[in-house]
Design a protein around this nucleic acid. Structure first.
Lengths: 235, 235
DNA sequence: CGGTAGCGGATTGTTGAGCAATCCAACAAG
DNA sequence: CTTGTTGGATTGCTCAACAATCCGCTACCG
């Protein structure tokens, strides 16, 4: 049994924080975008969406602000909002950031004591889930798990700011994934590399981890640049 | 003379991008907040501000969304928006992040070639400006230059994502500064430390730089925690 | 024919009023 | 002292309208 004094002393999660209508609209759009049903570059018209979602135009605008801050859409004054298209420069910037930040996750994970073990287990589960998905040909899920893997890695660095920044960056990265016709060719090689990284982390060999990670990121960037750079030179 | 073909080939800054009314309102509030005229914890009422700024309530709401994303204000559903109050845990999180990120700036600056020299010059100017401000007793400007110094340092890491993340973090940090009655005591010791850091960077002694930086951040965190932790235990 | 100026439709930016939902503080009842 | 209840205030959202701006089209002109 729990006494009242004990109840009062409990530390609660800051807020159950329900979601507003605008947030719900943003979530709906986010889902459509990251599922690829809204192609990069597509314009989102306020009136159209307001009618489709049965909400006011103002509420749609509020949702747009939320998505714009996540960089999933771009807002051009008096022109509208468009699903973000990632340029080659964007890809380079993203991987420049990842090469700086993800090593911090490796260090954090290796120097943390028991919590490092927990984090490592989380990474292992991501790889496992990705392998399962690959087995059943669900390459979209493989991509999701790949992203989840690296998010968890950076989370091990122990900085909420870095983690949430990478959250946004990875969501942006997924936009780039969507432009690839053949997802298997993109994600397949990185399945084994994630597995190997986990193994190296278990061994605790920091130098080897960092080398593997660096090599992973360079390869991923090159592959993605080949995809992103091509089709868009037209516009 | 410049032919039309040459004009077409020029790379322009992405957008002159004028600001919308909502952004102007956000800017006005931002200025009030970081000048300390709006105390942390104070509630911002939509109707009041709409009347005061001669804009619609809807526009004020849009400005709130912008500021909420910058974490300068907190938004509680059906309760309103409040100027953010930074908790001791927030301070600890901010400095945990800075200890991870700022060393990346040092490395970036030292390994960059000619651009590193330029960045170093920028840092030197920040310190110089801070020393000038301190001489005339303008401790608010000293704080601004201190923030600018560390922003420039992280910018040298070469990641737009990291830079913009730190932008937000430092704006948040300034909120914490505002709660301190005696700004001189807060900023004075760090003037010399920034100067010393610049000297070490000029020498190119990476290990010494990192040690000095780490020591700086630990001292700053401790000092800030003493301020932030105290007055707020009451509420 | 290339280039430019202006026109019109479409879309966004902003306003203001209005109503429902929710929170908060004060008060009343057990 | 704790537990409903009530009323006022504030936010969440909607709706309709108007102004500002952009885009594509056409007509004009060297």
């Amino acid at each position: 049994m729990t006494t009242q004094a004990e109840v009062a002393a409990l530390a609660f999660a800051p807020l159950p924080r329900r979601e507003s209508t605008a947030e719900a609209v943003a979530a709906a759009l986010r889902a459509q975008i990251s599922a690829g049903r809204l192609a990069p570059g597509a314009q989102l018209r306020e009136e159209h969406l307001a009618a489709a979602l049965q909400v006011s135009r103002n509420t749609v605008r509020e949702a747009f602000r939320l998505l714009a801050h996540e960089r999933l859409v771009e807002h051009a004054l008096h022109q509208g909002v468009f699903v973000r298209t990632v340029s080659p420069d964007d890809v380079r910037a993203m991987y420049a950031t990842r090469r700086l930040v993800e090593p911090l996750g490796v260090r954090g994970l290796l120097t943390a004591g028991p919590s490092g073990v927990v984090a490592l287990k989380g990474l292992d589960e991501c790889v496992w889930a990705a392998e399962q998905a690959a087995g059943s040909g669900d390459w979209h899920s493989v991509g999701t798990q790949d992203i989840e893997f690296h998010r968890a890695l950076v989370a091990a660095a122990g900085s909420v700011h870095l983690t949430s920044m990478l959250d946004g960056l990875l969501a942006e990265l997924r936009l780039a994934f969507l432009r690839l016709p053949d997802r298997e060719a993109l994600h397949e090689p990185f399945l084994d590399r994630n597995r190997r990284l986990v193994d190296l982390l278990e061994d605790g060999d920091e130098a080897a981890c960092l080398a593997e990670l660096e090599s992973y990121l360079i390869a991923a960037e090159a592959q993605l640049l080949q995809v992103v750079g091509g089709p868009d030179l037209a516009d």
